[in-house]
Design a protein around this nucleic acid. Structure first.
Lengths: 350, 350
DNA sequence: CTAATATGTGGGAACGTTCCCACTCGGAAC
DNA sequence: GTTCCGAGTGGGAACGTTCCCACATATTAG
């Protein structure tokens, strides 16, 4: 790698000063059309590429948005990032991503890396960092938290209304006639807390007794919790899972125990990931507006005037997607159809 | 955001020169323990954080690896990035990711962004960029391509041996006694080409007639192709899909047509994503060593001695993971032909 | 005709580091 | 008692931009 050409090389070749080249590179109107053309040609000729470091240093702007993503394996964040990217690109910003790997140390290191880069905005998606780190970040740049509702009000955040989401699930099940609705709780996190409290609230409102089991956000967690439910003998007619993966685990446990879904037990997931939509799975689930979450987050990050009046915490409404993992409880009526194959074909059966 | 403290602020507070502070920040041994302690204390007191841009500019090193990932929704890349990250972190490098979004323009813009940043190494994961862009990138920094085998030999690359992978699938099926093995081809890309040629080669070796249908790497693509196969009336006893998602689509199409998997038709996927492992799906599939792919790629990027002897192409061996979507063909019978619509009517549809 | 304005252009000082060189000051070697 | 050396320190010149100010020239207003 030989030395890369600089603005001065371009200037020399084009026979102008570095100032003019700089202006051309920044689309300043203060350059004659003729000069601009010559500079552009010279730049192309020698393969000039602006040096971001020098640019950042001199201008104190990077036009980079840093996104620290808790878990790149979770497609939830990929969807969200699409939204972030779109808004950022539109406004002339680039989005760089670092993986937190579900690990506080890694996540905080990523935050530090972006702060050293002096990114113009920092997006923390599902962050697992200490309050102190968050505070330090906030002191250095604009920060928006996504997918986690925050306790305090000091940092701007965008999240789904998870209380409402859990309510939707319970209401759907109660509406179908279920009264024994169990809840599998996810690993400790703001969303898990909100979903639980939504469940509790709507169970109370419906006059039903809550049944809560500890699980986590994995297939295995859902499997273990549902198996526990089966073992206990007190099998509910419906289960709310903390996310789609856990719902799938729960379904597996139920089927392993000889129970049919939704025949014997209805199951509702959360997130509406691509998984839930697979025909084989066809999970009724609470949809999160993932892309919109990203868009709102980016807007919060980039909007010029940080009006203090503006809501600092944006909650987006979820909605329920009804597929084939839920049905009315067995009430002595006709046996519920098995949920496979596709709904269309079952419905058209004479 | 008030002005952030610089090395000079730290120096003033600690009562030393900026040179000393710089040395402390870079762990130089040429500082007395006493001075080091004072500097560190001063830095912590005023919340000093090195300015990456200034550092990069002065040292001409960034200690950043840029990774352009074709599609962040594909968990394949998340696994790979884990490998990249581990190796990079071990050697004091940070990995920043930009999403290509399956789009040449976005991907090339991401490449450009990283080149402007003057990253110390550039990883292109499943790149969809023009040869010219690749060449320009190579002229500017170290470049490694991952997950795509390249035609030429001019850029270093790490990939799975997809020819071998497809062979494994065919050999498994042939070993089970299948002779009608159809292949669904993925969207045009180096891996799709390799897998196809592996299929063709091993079919020929086994003395079997190849049947090839155009599909893509999505569930819908697999569904459509398998449905076409069903409609044509010439139903194979086994299908090789270009990836797991397409395999799932194919299975859905088969089951929608009243065929059972693996009873009537065996299906093999490719990639061994988390999807394939779900109990409900339990797909026999070709496993790619994703994390190892990332590790090798990072090593190639970071290994000190870039032997000019020749750019290397590393091919990692895949292996077959046998689950429940494959079985021996039904002895003697072809799958029930009576339930198929007339070929004439299907052929008239587009 | 002069003054004022608009339009380009050039030069130099930042920006916050690293890195090289020069310097001081003990102590060891002669 | 010099000389030499190494450890520790300080100062200044890069690095490649942006941005401000000064200037040159052409155009317009009075």
């Amino acid at each position: 790698m030989t030395r890369q050409p600089t603005i001065l090389d371009v200037a020399a070749l084009a026979g102008v000063s570095k100032s003019v080249v700089s202006r051309v590179m920044n689309d300043s109107p203060l350059v004659s059309a003729e000069t601009r053309k010559a500079v552009l040609k010279a730049a192309a000729n020698i393969g000039y590429r602006p040096n971001a470091a020098a640019r950042h240093l001199a201008s104190n702007r990077t036009h980079i948005l840093g996104a620290v993503v808790d878990d790149l394996h979770n497609p939830f964040f990929a969807d969200m990032l699409d939204g972030v990217e779109d808004v950022a690109r539109e406004r002339g910003y680039r989005v760089m991503v670092m993986a937190g790997k579900r690990n506080t140390r890694h996540e905080e290191d990523a935050v530090e890396a972006f702060l050293e880069l002096r990114v113009d905005g920092l997006l923390l998606a599902g962050p697992q960092i200490r309050a102190q780190t968050l505070k330090r970040a906030r002191a250095a740049t604009r920060v928006v938290v996504a997918a986690h509702r925050l306790r305090g009000n000091s940092v701007r955040a965008v999240a789904t209304d998870d209380i409402r989401g859990a309510e939707l699930a319970v209401q759907h099940l109660a509406g179908l006639g279920h009264s024994h609705i169990a809840y599998l709780q996810g690993a400790p996190s703001p969303p898990a807390r909100d979903r639980l409290s939504g469940y509790q609230r709507s169970m109370k409102k419906a006059g039903l007794a809550p049944v809560i089991l500890q699980a986590d956000f994995t297939e295995d967690g859902g499997y273990a919790a549902a198996r526990e439910l089966v073992r206990s003998g007190a099998i509910p007619t419906a289960i709310c899972a903390p996310n789609d993966l856990a719902a799938i685990g729960a379904i597996n446990a139920l089927e392993d125990a000889g129970l049919s879904v939704p025949g014997d037990v209805s199951v509702v997931g959360y997130d509406d990931t691509a998984l839930a939509g697979l025909r084989h799975i066809s999970l009724t689930t609470v949809h999160q507006p993932r892309r919109a979450l990203g868009e709102r987050a980016a807007e919060l990050l980039l909007d010029e005037e940080e009006e203090p009046s503006r809501p600092r915490q944006i909650l987006l409404p979820p909605h329920l997607v009804i597929r084939s993992s839920t049905a009315a409880p067995r009430g002595g009526h006709e046996p519920s159809p098995h949920r496979l194959p596709s709904p269309a074909s079952t419905r058209s059966t004479p």
